[in-house]
Amino acid sequence: MAMTGILRPGHVQLRVLDIDEAVTHYCDNMGLIETDRDDQGRVYLKCWDEHDKFSVVLEPSDSSGMNHMAFKVRTEQDLWRFESNVKNFGVETTRIPAEELNGCGERVSFVAPGGHRFDLYAEKESVGNGIPTTNPAPWSEDTVGMKAIRFDHCLLYGDDHDEEVRFFVEALEFELSEQVVDGEMQIAAFLSCSTKAHDIAFIRHGEPGKLHHASFLLGSWEQVLRAADIISMKDIPLDVGPTRHGLTRGMTIYYFDPSGNRNEVFAEDSYRYPDSPVLTWTADNSGQAIFYHSRTLVESFMGVVS
């Protein structure tokens, strides 16, 4: 069966302190492609293998962090159905008119219980991935740096973890794929709306609305190592890696954009089906769950958010 309802993370709008430094980082270092700018100074980017016009919006701001994350739903009927689900959960919604972001259809916007803003939309202008749809080539020649394939997921820290996870499961129809638990208390939840190991993840935290990282897919472990080379060559602040996660099995490296927003590039993670069991890691083994090789938690990785 094809995917229904919410299809995927569609875009993330990140606040940046210096727009030129941010564009250099995301385009020259990571390989995203600039597709538009607007009169608010926002810059629209996509990864090479994405067809829709943008998956990252960089917003000039005096603070760092995430403005919102948006999911694409399959049809307009789905959009109104989820709007109703969200309201029925007790979360207020607003509608944002089409073209408030260039090329994006009407959005349903709301703040989830952990203090993060999410938008849903059904339509976005398609600009293609630079490869013909008939007899396509396997990859685009027009990409540089880490050659990120797609915007994949975010990990968010919020102050009402249990309600935010319940909201995603009950109102937005995500499924729990993996979790970290301390006795009865859930520390981390990895949630999927697809066959991916996660489309979004949440970690229990004291402050509302924080971004831990925005993540982008690469093609292989070799590409992750190449990203590590670029991080050193370009003097990008490294956080952790390259290594493997126990959670989701992904091969990964973490670093920061010039405004202190953490990025991940990763490859070769796990997958799930609706009948897959939930995988559980126990808090006493959280070192291995997070960094499978060193089995040691890293203070900056656990505590630093934007």
């Binding site: 927003n261 900056s300 505590g303 934007s306």
Partner: peptide, 14 residues
């Protein structure tokens, strides 16, 4: 040891 090196971009505040 333990000098809190965070984002190095003015975003995390440590």
């Amino acid at each position: 040891k333990g000098i809190p090196v965070g984002c190095r971009g003015g975003g995390c505040g440590v």
